[in-house]
Amino acid sequence: MPVGVLALQGDFREHIIALESCGADAIEVKTLAELNRCHGLIIPGGESTVIQKLATNYDLFEPIKNKIKSGLPTFGTCAGLIMLAEKIVDGIEGQIGFGGLDVSVRRNAFGNQLDSFETDLSFKGITGEPVHAAFIRAPIVEEVGPGVEVLSSLDDGRVVAVRAQNVMGIAFHPEVTGELRVHQLFLKMVDSR
């Protein structure tokens, strides 16, 4: 069974390429039928407000929410992290996510595009070279609920990657830097289910 990438808007093609480079079978998910074929799901980078609207308009919002709740391994990057947070700070009116991670996430936490940056991070479960990360109008995790594991933080302590059971969310974009080890970590979550 393939791993799906929610393909409504954003850098879903880069996630497909990353998954395929890891040797996984990857498909774009735009419909319920495609969602139902997947045994893992990635919510890509993009605009969270747009992804929410399109998912709602095309009757994918509740099904994705329920799949995550019932244990579907799910991985979100940047906008995807926002979509997986139980609480969104600085969202637009009525903005909600699929949930799955008991965290509070602030949108555009670093400011505008001039404050976007690249940096190196240590990441729990990834050994060797540090993870090279691109933060693009990125969110951060402000509050972490019980049962949520912090996987990576910036030097100043701000949390940028978390995991709880079947769900992993990160504030940066391994799919645009050629970093495959975070996807490999997710594929392990998919395989171990």
């Binding site: 808007q9 954003g10 993009g46 976007s116 691109a134 933060f135 693009i136 109008r137």
Partner: peptide, 11 residues
Amino acid sequence: VKRGLAEMMKG
């Protein structure tokens, strides 16, 4: 980082 923001706008 500059090109990356455009990547996020795709679609």
